[in-house]
Design a protein around this nucleic acid. Sequence first.
DNA 1: GATAATAAAATTGTTAACAATATTTTATCA
DNA 2: TGATAAAATATTGTTAACAATTTTATTATC
Lengths: 239, 239
Amino acid sequence: MATQNIKPGLAKFSEDDVLRQIEQAVLDHRLVPGTKLKEVQLANLFGVKRGLIRKVLTRLAHSRLVDQTPNRGATVAKPSVKEGQDLFATRRVIESAILETLIGHAEEKHVQQLGRMLDREQKAYLRGDSERALGLSVDFHRELARMAGNSVLEEYLNDIIRRTPLVILTHLGGDEHNRCRNQEHEAIVDAIARRDVKTAKKVMHQHLLHIESKIKHKPEKPPADLAELLRPHSVGQPA
Amino acid sequence: MATQNIKPGLAKFSEDDVLRQIEQAVLDHRLVPGTKLKEVQLANLFGVKRGLIRKVLTRLAHSRLVDQTPNRGATVAKPSVKEGQDLFATRRVIESAILETLIGHAEEKHVQQLGRMLDREQKAYLRGDSERALGLSVDFHRELARMAGNSVLEEYLNDIIRRTPLVILTHLGGDEHNRCRNQEHEAIVDAIARRDVKTAKKVMHQHLLHIESKIKHKPEKPPADLAELLRPHSVGQPA
DNA sequence: GATAATAAAATTGTTAACAATATTTTATCA
DNA sequence: TGATAAAATATTGTTAACAATTTTATTATC
């Protein structure tokens, strides 16, 4: 049987829980673009009512993480090449503004905190834990946004970050291509420490262009395994 | 009786219709921050089921136009001073990027189209139709975003534009203060026509700073009339 | 009259049953 | 076999009834 409960009735998740879990699944490439998201299946999976799933799907559609078609349900969004390009271009603008704002009032403790994050990221990478390294790499960008202290910029960067995996999976090849380079993160922190806005922006710009340049059309992925949403490293089945 | 139907059963609105009408009401200051949005009242008002209103309110909350508190319903959002500042600061970044992108590929027809919009705006202003002038002024900014051709930048600017009236009404005085100055719009179009990115950005920057500088704390507005959402120039009652 | 407890009303939140639509399967015929 | 139509199933969409909670009104007490 395809649709199976995961400890039915045991784990009770709130609406935000479910939302975050699906977002996280997109973030670390477990949910791939095109995957059909059936309401009862998800409801069973999370042990919640269908109405709750319904609300979550609406919210996800609102932030463009899923596509909803009337009477035909929801699928994980497949952003167009154009949308991907626009997303990356906007990301450069936003991250640039974040750096400018942050450096405007950066203190020593901020630099130290960023240094610690670089260490963690480096260690994870060296020990071969690439999943963890990817997560920490994302956290690095998020932390810059948080430190900048502009809630709207932070909100927009998070929005872009959430949508980026869909662009990568739809138009880029494997996961190897999309990891941030730790060296570049280091160079950014160095520039911040020196209050060197120009260099910081330049490195960030290069850093982001690196990934963007690889966007191009790519053949469909073959249908994969069923939705084992909660288990890491698994992948849903495209519609 | 406070809650009255407006031709019940006659006008049937879709979910998007209702969403847009409420957004529009916020945009032209008919709905003021703090207004309680009761589900049955809205349902009667629009001649739709409560479930539909419920979905709309969720979506509005997601774009921070309304605040939702569990068991206590929804009110039109009252952004904090900080959020207002962040919003304006981000707007400068976004509009700057829009100008840069637009000027990068602006054609003569774009400039002409903008010129026509300036005329319309000026005429409305001269004939004293300030409501219409305000609308056209907003359209001007939107049109710049559309012409730039980056869907994400456009999306973010529209988000900011939708939220701005709430900041103004919460922290600024009357409506007179917040109108865009037509001269500045003209100067921007002139700069675009000359492909002068630097000047265009500078004028836009000043243009936006003008409003932002006026944000400060302001006493509560007294409760006003009931929700005559559909009728222009009317105002809802704060909670 | 003011305050606190209680009851009534209003409002929001949830659910299960049903309707409408789409998808898959089976049956029919050339 | 392959194509088409019909039936069966699965999935999404809607609704009304109910439950839970908050707000308002009423009463009781000092």
